[in-house]
Design a protein around this nucleic acid. Sequence first.
RNA 1: UGGGGGAUCGUCUAGCGGUAGGACGCCAGAUUCUGGAUCUGGCUGCCCAGGUUCGAUCCCUGGUCCCCCAGCCA
Length: 562
Amino acid sequence: MSSSDQHSSIDFIRAKIIADLESQKFGKRVHTRFPPEPNGHLHIGHAKSICLNFGIAREFGGLCNLRLDDTNPTKENMEYVTSIQEDLQWLGFDWDDRLFYASDYFEQLYQYAVMLIQKGKAYVDSLTAEEIRLYRGTLTEPGRESPHRKRTIEENLALFSRMRAREYENGVHVLRAKIDMASPNINLRDPALYRIRHATHYRTGEAWCVYPTYDFAHPLSDSLEGITHSLCTLEFEDHRPLYDWVLRECEVSCHSQQIEFARLNLGHTVMSKRKLLQLVEEGHVKGWDDPRLPTLKGLRRRGYTPEAIRNFCERVGVAKRDSVIEMALLEHAIREDLNRSASRVMAVLHPLKVIIENYPVGQIEELEAVNNPEDPSEGKRRISFCREIYIEQEDFREDPPKKFFRLSPGQEVRLRYAYIIRCVGFEKDPQTGEVMALRCTFDPDTKSGKTQSSRKVKGTLHWVSAQHAIPAEVRLYEALLTQSNPGSGGELQDLQMLLNPHSLTVLSGCKVEPDLSKATPGSRFQFERQGYFCLDPDSTQDKLVFNRTVPLRDSWAKIEKE
RNA sequence: UGGGGGAUCGUCUAGCGGUAGGACGCCAGAUUCUGGAUCUGGCUGCCCAGGUUCGAUCCCUGGUCCCCCAGCCA
């Protein structure tokens, strides 16, 4: 056991599992599952569930299945299945040979339904959807029994069989559980078990025209797979009596324990499939992998590591209260990871030319730079220095405010890994007032590494050689939404109004170290003093494109704000 | 005004009758050739009102507020 292990106290789910283990409720087994519906891409909310389910299986020496919960042919497709598997693998989880599909259980599920009919626990209803809704009652009034509720077992068997035999159009019949139309729990007012859907299922094709509902398929799928603990989100809490009813009435041998926890909400973004889809389809973002999205594909493209995401999910904890996690925690997780692992390079986002007047024209020096001060094994590299360089525009102020430790007329700074320079003049565009270039002098005695430089300067600037640097595009990202908690409701218009107009800023005239031309898409770097960036797949031979994953913490920005 | 859940620092999360702890964040300092990282120190909290108890975040009673449920979605 490493000493760095933080014994995070056990959450209520793990406590329950431990209790079940002690009581031998499922013997010594712990078997979980991650059951996404293949109708959307995975996001960080799913990551929490994934880390929980796979994490628990690993911790208790159990197993975790991947199950595609594909009981609705009108919404699901194979592309999502593939995407889900990719994302899961990228996140670092492995389901070995335990890849399952609810659709593989259709025949068994159908037989269970027949069994319920035979027990008089299910019946075919022929009311319209609208009528069923009316008969259901309201939150405060009990429902009424359907006139078809008294059909005989034989009638129901025949009808259900003919439903399967494609004799009816969509919606003319539905198989319902016979429970209690007066139950205060609306989910128990004879919920639908099977509906007719003449649609091509992406896996079973035309084999079926009746499909089980979630409430019927899910508990039985869990049971069929021998799942001991079926973890789901809070909104299913009042489905649990139904979950248990199905397993009891179907007389299964493995009665899985459903446990509910609060879903993950992240500030300044949205997590619902519906809203994510809306953002993509209406073109507010460029696709499912847009770096502004909380999708796994978006985070990956943004530069997030699986490690950071897993860490984040652990820190977030598991509980039953609704919560909204601050983006700062996610950012902390990725900074923590990248600080250890990302190679440092110098890149200038808003270039300002600096001419070092006393540096010989045409002279080029090779300076030594550390690749990663957090990891000496990453070694060193050579960077070129010459008479003309670029620094960041914001690193010069004609009239410096207090505590501005950068360049201003007459002031000195160190150029990282190079010399101390002093600003002796600057050129301004007479029209715009924009500073066009700086004139500086350097002190040859202050070369980096030469310790005799007794002089201390308050600031160190990053820079690139004007002659050697290569151009790049840099994409800066900020929060997608202006509001920290957009809430769970909200329609199209509301979401649009919350969009942050500055969520993406494209910088096209950036200058970066020439070695970056050898980087491969997805590789991550720290641009010194600025943040963590990763090379975007949009990059081409002659145009590098970087995404800013997250800026470095910036205490100067805080000071200046005052 | 039916049923099911939930309320602890700004944000998350521990606590299970005995000094309210951790993380993120924030503030201050040290250090630093990244205003980064690191290291110190500090900050703010038990929804309310009664009750039981020597002692209550915890147990009881009564409130208040928030979330979920009336799909043939999951």
